[in-house]
């Protein structure tokens, strides 16, 4: 069996297309590369969707934390504190069992107990809280002069926010936000190791890496493959965010443009 056959069989295994049974007794390099790569689909799915949806909610949270209205401020502060102050791992567990018991009283919540949506909700809230804190810090450090200039031009309310405050906030927050995105992708590996079950062994990259390590008693092959995939993913994220960073900073003189400093990998 050539490697192409294996890729055809297992390339989309993690989404349920292709061979039903996972390999039982042949664990060639090709098998491991293909299946772990196939698992990366889930990591990318969780990461991308949580980032996109979390971005907007994070802006709301940051604005809420800045707001003078105590109701908004308090609720935003508590949301951020709860999701930043507790381990993501426990959040996954709690959410899963919460959804389970909700499902018993209201069957509508049924889908939430499966990973593809339930874990996404948790990741969405989690990344919103972390990003909200970053955006809040950026909002606080917007140069006073920028706002004053906007006032002088007669920009107020929504227009001022849309044209001055928001772009400046993004520009200041971007390096930290890049790191947050990298952490989020790393955090997606936790999904199938917390409560959320895999259906028919459709797991993420770490799930398959763990499968191979368990079967072969040899951690030295699957985990480095996984690490390699993640390093590539991280590089792609850095590249994409770097492009946005360039665009956000394009009005500044070259010497003022900040480079994104890479600070990798801290557990949340």
């Amino acid at each position: 069996m050539s490697c192409w056959d294996i890729i055809a069989d297992y390339g989309l295994r993690s989404v349920g297309i292709g061979e039903r049974l996972l390999p039982r007794n042949e664990f060639t390099l090709c098998h491991q590369f293909t299946l772990i790569g196939s698992g990366m689909i889930w990591n990318i799915y969780f990461g991308v969707l949580a980032l996109i949806s979390g971005f907007f909610f994070a802006t709301l949270l940051a604005l809420g934390k800045m707001s003078t209205n105590p109701i908004f401020r308090r609720s935003a502060e508590w949301t951020i504190f709860i999701f930043r102050g507790s381990p993501l791992f426990i959040q996954f567990f709690f959410a899963y069992f919460l959804f389970l018991s909700l499902k018993q009283s209201f069957p509508i919540f049924g889908p939430l107990t499966s990973a593809w949506i339930g874990a996404l909700v948790v990741l969405f809230l989690n990344t919103s809280a972390y990003t909200g804190e970053i955006f809040y810090g950026a909002l606080q450090s917007i140069p006073k002069g920028d706002i004053e200039a906007a006032d002088a031009y007669g920009l107020t309310g929504w227009k001022r926010f849309r044209r001055i405050t928001w772009p400046t906030m993004l520009r200041l927050a971007w390096p930290a936000y890049t790191n947050e995105a990298i952490f989020l992708f790393h955090a997606t590996t936790l999904v199938f190791f917390s409560g959320f079950p895999t259906t028919r062994q459709r797991g993420d990259a770490l799930y398959y890496a763990n499968y191979f390590a368990d079967k072969t008693f040899n951690p030295f092959v699957p985990y480095p493959i996984l690490a390699g995939y993640f390093i590539v993913l991280t590089l792609i994220v850095i590249g994409l965010y770097g492009l946005v960073n360039k665009r956000l900073n394009r009005h500044l003189p070259v010497s003022d443009r900040g480079k994104i400093k890479l600070r990798m990998n801290i557990i949340r």
Binding site: H186, A213, Y223, A227, N265
Partner: peptide, 19 residues
């Protein structure tokens, strides 16, 4: 150590150390 995804490192290292 900083460059490798965290949980993978945890899972890898325990078996590797044991072996």
């Amino acid at each position: 150590v900083r460059g490798v995804p965290e949980i993978a490192f945890f899972m890898f290292f325990v078996i590797a150390l044991d072996q």
